[in-house]
Design a protein around this nucleic acid. Sequence first.
DNA 1: CTCCCTAATGGTATCGTTATCATGTCAAGT
DNA 2: ACTTGACATGATAACGATACCATTAGGGAG
Lengths: 338, 338
Amino acid sequence: MDKLRKNPTMTDVAIKAGVSPMTVSRAFKPGSLVNDQTRARIHAAAEELGYVLDSTASSLRSQKTDFVAVTIPSINNANFADTVGALTEGLKPRGLQILLGYTNYDVEEEERLIEQLLRRRPQALVVTGGQHTARTRRLLENAHVPVIETWDLPSTPVDHVIGFSNAQAVQVMVDHFVEKRLTRIAFIGGDVDRDTRGLDRRRGFIAAMQRHGLDATRLIAAGPPPISMREGAEAMVHLLETAPDTEAVICVSDLSAFGALSACQRRGIAVPDQISIAGFGNYEVGAICVPSITTIDPSPSEIGRRAAELLCRVLDSGSNLPICEEIDPRLLLRESSI
Amino acid sequence: MDKLRKNPTMTDVAIKAGVSPMTVSRAFKPGSLVNDQTRARIHAAAEELGYVLDSTASSLRSQKTDFVAVTIPSINNANFADTVGALTEGLKPRGLQILLGYTNYDVEEEERLIEQLLRRRPQALVVTGGQHTARTRRLLENAHVPVIETWDLPSTPVDHVIGFSNAQAVQVMVDHFVEKRLTRIAFIGGDVDRDTRGLDRRRGFIAAMQRHGLDATRLIAAGPPPISMREGAEAMVHLLETAPDTEAVICVSDLSAFGALSACQRRGIAVPDQISIAGFGNYEVGAICVPSITTIDPSPSEIGRRAAELLCRVLDSGSNLPICEEIDPRLLLRESSI
DNA sequence: CTCCCTAATGGTATCGTTATCATGTCAAGT
DNA sequence: ACTTGACATGATAACGATACCATTAGGGAG
């Protein structure tokens, strides 16, 4: 492979096809005015030269990058992956390409990431979460492009929002357990100071428990987020040792819930007969495992689909009225809870 | 948010800081020769104006985009996500940013995707798999940048390779079962014509069975890849009905293996006492579930780590000697097999 | 036969940055 | 005093595409 030879440019193609560079440019832009034969000749010349359009130059001149910057906490999370997948699909027809970055559940890292992404001059940003550093907010506001915050309901949104209240979703779960006459309920989550959605869920748990006049101190902190299956299992072992009379456990995600379930199975504790387990997120594992796990479905791909729709609408209209679309997470009752 | 106002440029910052644009440029490039006070003044001016470097223009002028294009079959797969995660980490110190695309397990889609990615003029490409259309190969060869094929051992590599033989890995698994005196072994996988790595695993299964003189016709095609847990469960139900004397099942991934395990549990079939189950990929679910699932660990993040290392080495040296690093997948014996 | 309109193409300037070369300053060495 | 060289900055052109305006040819209306 000869890495020294330069890539051919539009001028090379133009010479070979016997037209001006301007016509080559048009031939590569769908829906522009070029004679069919000329276009065919140009594409043939391009293919022969191995010409590939340089969208760096194109972006600079036209001031359109066709990038949409997206931040998610971690690439290795099926829920966020679903959102990004749906977003990608929804933006593909418009020729918009995703530029993805990971914040590692850290707002400082998010700040660095967003600055780096903004350098690429995306035409819109979709960020996960509604909590940011002051500088991040400033960067987003100064970017002069649409911003969508997702997976959250920020009290003071930067711009558009497609999300739901993590706290309220968990409160619904607590209410359900209380209705079933379960009162000794525990919460397994991560360390409080990183994952803001996890923190919201924990807060929702505490608020709901207190509203019912119940003890809200059965809180297991399983380490820095994201809490995996293994950490869910370890947390469950810890819970069984320190509070063996616990009747129900709500986990910050289905993954930790599945870990908790496995820990029970290894110790011969019957779920849900001896203890009820619930998760969050409607991950596939919770639907398939035995017993299947009660959870809350925040419709990750619905978030992505609607974000794409909203973006297309906003980019078309040029309007800058902030829009807030609330997703309604559904409670899915399954075999792991009575 | 005023989307009409233009973003400030280097010239704006230069005027505000009382220097030339060239000095501003240098002030934003780490390790270049600018007086400390001047640099501080420039950064202050930039911050006040909300200036963010435009890497579109920068890339065009310097002919360096700092992009590495990466293709994976699907974003929603923990194994590929691990590879991409490790790759991202490994490239971050060099200031290289990942530009990610999904092929949806389809070589035609891969062709479209790679052309689109090449327009962004990445400085390297990392693709998953070693099977491509003729045009894709041509595009990759004409790109004049390093290419790494991963997760496979192509017979005629485009350039560099970091991978393993999917077929051989499954043969090891078959050998293990045969050694344990299991002979009626089935394979659960996807449709044959999409996922080439899945196809290789199926081929490895058939080859190994025939080598042992065993019947290699217990093949369940569970639909188009990727095969999920649900499809694994459905395939297992089908297998139990059509070939109830099966002693062991090898699944194309741990996810389908977990589905198969769950199907057994719902029907009261003891694993591994009545039937042994094995997967592929060392996904977390297989390590945590009860019983844990025997699998093959292809070290996804090791692939990403080594791809990043290799890229840095190649980009530094400018060498274009193709390098092939083979990963050795390990057989992990767990509770789901006797 | 002129006028006007549309289709098809070309010429030129420009997007915002940085490679490159040139320039100026100051301190140390001879 | 004069060279030397490191440091610090500036001026200019260029990266490869496209926005914008100009031009030509041909065809239909009047």
